[in-house]
Simulated assay, not measured.
Amino acid sequence: MITLRGVTKRFTGPDGPLTAVDDVDLHVPRGSVQGIIGFSGAGKSTLIRLINLLERPDSGTVEVDGTDLTAVDEAELRRRRTKIGMIFQHFNLLANLTAAQNVELALRIAGVDKAARAARVAEALAVVDLADKADVHPAKLSGGQQQRVAIARALANEPSVLLCDEPTSAVDPRTTVSVLSYLKEVNERLGITIVLVTHEMNVVRAIADDVAVMDGGKVVEHLELDGSPLRPETEIARFMVDDRIRLRSGRDLEESRAG
């Protein structure tokens, strides 16, 4: 469904060139949920934006549903993007539009006619149990409801792929469970392939089939989440899997500063 081959992305920063994604290969089977985990700066958010070419790779290819997106023209890329939904960390809802109007906006941009837009908006809001909030503005919705509107907006164009960039980072633990439940439902009921970026191992454990661990722009390890005990081989993966919090003692901190 999604295949990245030798994908590299560089940026120019204040200290010179920065390789955000470094020669990454990744395959995501159709209908699966792929987790991507790593610390801040590991390259995971850049990687997910390379899948729909919001960031264009400096080298390598990005294939989605049988098409190499790096090889098509801009008009074809825009058409292909309508089938790649995206959910952002901070919802990205327009405050002056109602929930229904926020969902409809994606359909307007895609050129869907008015009658079809109304039907799809209703269907998308129903999927996330927000049909009764259609005429409510984002400020009157809870954080979890706002994220569910964002999910509905991403579903409105009937995508085959859903990209989720830290979708639970801005909500509390109870809302996290709700958001993940809706994502899992659309994966299982609608067959949508999901790629989910997070820094929380408990999030990928709850929903993903496989997790790619990123460090320094590279995918350093894959862990299959099939219910069997995880045996990470790299230090970074072991740290991410062991999500307990351990506080360092004052003495350890002093020795660290001295070193």
Rank of each mutant, 00 (worst) to 15 (best):
L105F: 13
V62C: 09
P167I: 06
G143A: 15
V128L: 07
T98R: 02
R80C: 07
E76D: 11
A170L: 12
V121D: 02
R120H: 08
A110P: 11
I151R: 03
G66C: 05
Q147I: 10
L125C: 11
N157E: 12
L69V: 05
A134Y: 03
N157P: 04
Q89S: 10
T82L: 05
L125H: 01
L163H: 03
L77H: 07
D73W: 07
K133L: 05
T67N: 15
V62N: 06
A150K: 09
R117S: 11
K140T: 10
A115T: 07
A75W: 13
R117W: 14
L130A: 00
L130R: 00
E63R: 12
A170M: 13
D73N: 14
N92Q: 14
A106M: 01
N102K: 04
T70P: 06
R81M: 12
L93D: 04
C164Q: 03
A116C: 11
R78D: 12
A152H: 05
E104H: 08
D65N: 15
D132W: 13
A131P: 09
G66Q: 02
P167Q: 02
I84G: 00
L94A: 12
L155A: 03
T82Y: 09
L105W: 12
D68N: 12
R79P: 01
Q147K: 09
V103C: 02
S169H: 01
R117P: 07
A71S: 15
K133S: 12
E76Q: 14
T67M: 14
N102T: 08
R120F: 07
T168D: 06
D132K: 12
Q145M: 09
R148C: 00
A106D: 10
N92G: 01
A156H: 01
N102Y: 08
R80N: 10
G85N: 07
H137P: 10
A95I: 06
V112K: 01
A126N: 01
A122I: 10
K133T: 04
D165Y: 03
H137L: 15
S59H: 14
E76G: 07
A154E: 03
D135N: 10
R81Q: 15
S142H: 05
T70K: 08
S160R: 06
I87T: 04
H90E: 05
Q101Y: 04
V149R: 02
D113K: 04
A110I: 09
S59C: 06
I109S: 12
R78A: 08
E104A: 08
P138Q: 06
G85W: 02
R81V: 07
A150I: 13
T82D: 10
R108M: 15
R117N: 03
G85A: 06
E166S: 09
E74C: 05
T82Q: 05
C164Y: 00
A122Y: 03
G66S: 13
E76N: 15
L107R: 02
S169M: 15
K83Y: 05
N157L: 11
V64L: 07
A150G: 06
Q101A: 13
P159H: 04
A131F: 05
V136Y: 11
V136T: 15
S169N: 05
V136G: 04
